[in-house]
Design a protein around this nucleic acid. Structure first.
Lengths: 237, 237
DNA sequence: GTCTATAAGATGATAGAC
DNA sequence: GTCTATCATCTTATAGAC
């Protein structure tokens, strides 16, 4: 149980671990458990006792490592944000360099989404829980918007910059609103609520990333064009 | 404060109220307060004490009317769902009757969205809080999907039926996935998290429904076409 | 580092007076 | 209907032993 980090990082040899290594392992184990709990129940639905019990430590240890409940939440959010942001930035850089003047909206959106979709499909339950957490936070009133801003604004601005090369005549507000629509589609997908499963009578599954990925790219790219280039989307033909 | 219901329903004359009327007024006042609290803090972030204090009643009265915290939440959710569903169904019926064989994706999506967007812009803070609550619930893991299904599935199936008339060759799964994208965009908008405000440096505002409405319709309609009719969306020209 | 013990207060819910 | 009083439990957090 809760073997996300152990499954994703090379396991240190069992004997001969230094104190620092053991401490680090405990810290990561707490983060893994907290990540899962927060993603399922939200910030207020989780108690430190539940996290401590599942991580097989005492609640006092959570305070030792993360000070407060909010501190634990922030640590969970930050851990993978750094990895993801670096990856997305590089993907956008790479795409822009490769495409040259032939940048398309599809290409930009794909470069932005693929680091998420690929991990969602392949990188194990830890990342999956993290993405579900993002899905919850993005739709959280009061502090959700501020939190997303704090961690993810730079890469969004990078995306918009690339999209603008494909739609040079687009107005700023149209680009931002279009991203807003994409953001909603993406984070609802990441939340994996199972709603599409029952709505569709089983035809679609929330966890079928391979099915939703290409459709999200096509849907969003067409949406960007329709909003940012009125007349660019042809209702007929 | 918390004058949503009083502002939206004709005020009964102050004297000569029957006991039943006073009871009903208290019940509605509790629902109004709970609606606001749940929409801002989510199910687990709200305490019955906070609701009782703001509604100027005792917590025991909440249990008298709604049995439990979950009962109160469900009552909040149901109250406006009935009104909204009826309105959306009629809007879709009306559009289909008017358009005849000239049904368009834009028209169907607009008929589906307008009852929400119009209320969001004009119907007062009560409806606004309710929509924010929908935004939170739609992205809530574990029970969010089930709750949305319970209250809103019929009208979604009605929407898809109308869209299918505009896209007769569309496959079922493409229609459902497209709706899924629209659902994410809509509920993020309804949550009004303020994220777009800071992301755009003030160019866009979360509460500017007049700005987001037309863009959501254009974005979603183009997305439906791109997903459901491959080749129907033209990247160039 | 990790645990025991405990503080200090909040929580959902109920029984019963009026 | 509405309130007072109260219960049993749970909550975050801290002090200090080992």
């Amino acid at each position: 149980m809760t073997s996300a980090a152990r499954a994703e990082t090379p396991a240190p040899r069992r004997s001969g671990r230094t104190r620092a290594e053991k401490s680090q392992a405990t810290r990561e184990r707490i983060l893994d458990v907290a990540e899962g709990e927060f993603s399922r129940h939200g910030m207020d639905g989780v108690t430190l006792r539940a996290v401590a019990r599942k991580a097989r430590v005492d609640t006092a240890l959570l305070h030792y490592y993360f000070d407060s409940k909010k501190g634990l939440f922030d640590a969970v959010f930050l851990r993978r944000a750094e990895v993801l942001n670096k990856d997305r930035m590089e993907a956008l850089d790479r795409y822009e360099a490769e495409a040259g003047d032939a940048v398309t909206v599809e290409g930009a959106v794909a470069a932005f989404l693929n680091p998420v979709l690929d991990r969602c499909a392949n990188a194990g339950p830890g990342w999956r829980a993290y993405f579900a957490l993002i899905g919850v936070v993005n739709n959280t009133p009061l502090w959700g918007g501020e939190t997303m801003t704090r961690y993810f604004d730079p890469v969004i601005h990078r995306l918009i910059k690339v999209v603008r090369r494909a739609l040079p005549e687009a107005r700023e507000e149209d680009l931002f609103w279009s991203y807003h629509m994409l953001s909603g589609s993406l984070t609802l997908t990441l939340a994996e609520t199972g709603r599409i499963d029952t709505l569709s009578g089983g035809i679609c599954r929330s966890d079928d990333i391979a099915a939703v990925g290409p459709r999200m790219i096509a849907y969003a790219a067409a949406g960007f064009r329709a909003v940012c280039r009125p007349g660019g989307d042809q209702p007929s033909a």
